[in-house]
Simulated scan of single mutants.
Amino acid sequence: MEMKINVSVLIKVLALQCLAVLCASQDFDFFYFVQQWPGSYCDTNKGCCYPKTGKPAADFGIHGLWPNYKDGSYPSNCDPQAPFNPSEIRDLSSRIQKDWPTLACPSGDGLAFWEHEWTKHGTCSESVLDQHDYFATALSLKNQSNLLRSLKTAGIIPNGGYYSLESIKSAIKDGMGYTPYIECNVDESGNSQLYQVYLCVDSNGSSLIECPVFPHGKCGSTIEFPTF
């Protein structure tokens, strides 16, 4: 009887270990690479706080690199055994502070933001990107996709003016070569404004692709591009 109990326990332990491995390396179909306009983040009832390093540049900042499935669902929090380790991205610190700034209150150094993105999303891409590669890949994609330049080339500038949603999409597609998804939020007066831009990336994190599926949500036909 003693041996049977031990074997049973062993089987359960092995099964749990296998499940943990599967969760940590589960497949996904593509990434959403999400960038946000800081002026829209701040121009809401909730407001914002600049990071301890000071006011970020008036440019789109990285929100995250998110594994997704083609059916519109996504994995999250995949590996509790892979905690965020700031020392692994120390060589990227100046670039992350510049291109991936936190605007949450109270003012912070960004570590809580980056830890959240790694824990919720990054751990689900460990089969192709370790922690350092995850952040380095997002920074590389930021360099590839100069959203503000594409918009300014089309005469769309962050001056508090209003632009058609279609013109914003077209400007980004002309600059990037791929169709974006535009997410809006609402300012204190209830106006729809350009908040986040989603581009899609292949499952290796190496190349932009056309999005297999877009998130749910809706913007007005004309949206504000606020100053920052």
Score class of each variant (00 low, 15 high):
I172W: 01
P75I: 07
A138E: 00
N191C: 08
C48E: 02
K4N: 10
Q26A: 09
L148P: 03
I156H: 06
L103F: 01
F30S: 05
S73A: 13
Y181P: 01
N85K: 08
C42N: 04
N146T: 11
G220F: 07
Y69T: 08
F228I: 12
D99Y: 05
S87K: 09
D187F: 03
P86Y: 02
V21W: 10
F214T: 10
Q144N: 13
H63E: 12
A82K: 06
T119P: 01
L165N: 11
T227K: 13
S76C: 10
D133E: 15
L139V: 05
L148I: 14
Q196E: 15
H121V: 04
Y50W: 15
L147T: 07
F228E: 11
I156A: 09
S170A: 15
A104I: 04
F60Y: 13
L194N: 06
N143Q: 13
A138F: 01
D91I: 06
S25R: 10
Y198G: 03
V128C: 02
P212G: 14
S164M: 12
L14F: 13
F33C: 01
H132F: 10
S73W: 09
M176C: 12
C184H: 10
P86A: 03
T222E: 13
D99S: 08
A24D: 06
L10Q: 02
P101I: 06
I89D: 01
E2N: 11
D174A: 15
N77C: 06
A138K: 05
Q17I: 15
T137C: 03
A57D: 14
Q144A: 12
G161V: 07
L141E: 04
F225T: 11
I209M: 11
P67H: 05
S203W: 04
L10S: 10
G205C: 03
N185W: 04
A171G: 10
H116K: 07
N191Q: 14
C23D: 09
G122W: 04
V128G: 03
A112G: 03
Y134Q: 00
I89K: 02
D109L: 00
C23A: 14
S192E: 14
D202L: 08
F28H: 05
D133M: 06
Q35R: 03
V128W: 00
W37A: 02
P67N: 09
V7C: 08
K46F: 08
F84G: 03
H132A: 00
N204R: 12
L16Q: 06
F225L: 11
Q131Y: 03
Q97T: 11
N143G: 11
K55R: 15
V186W: 04
G217A: 13
L103M: 08
F28V: 08
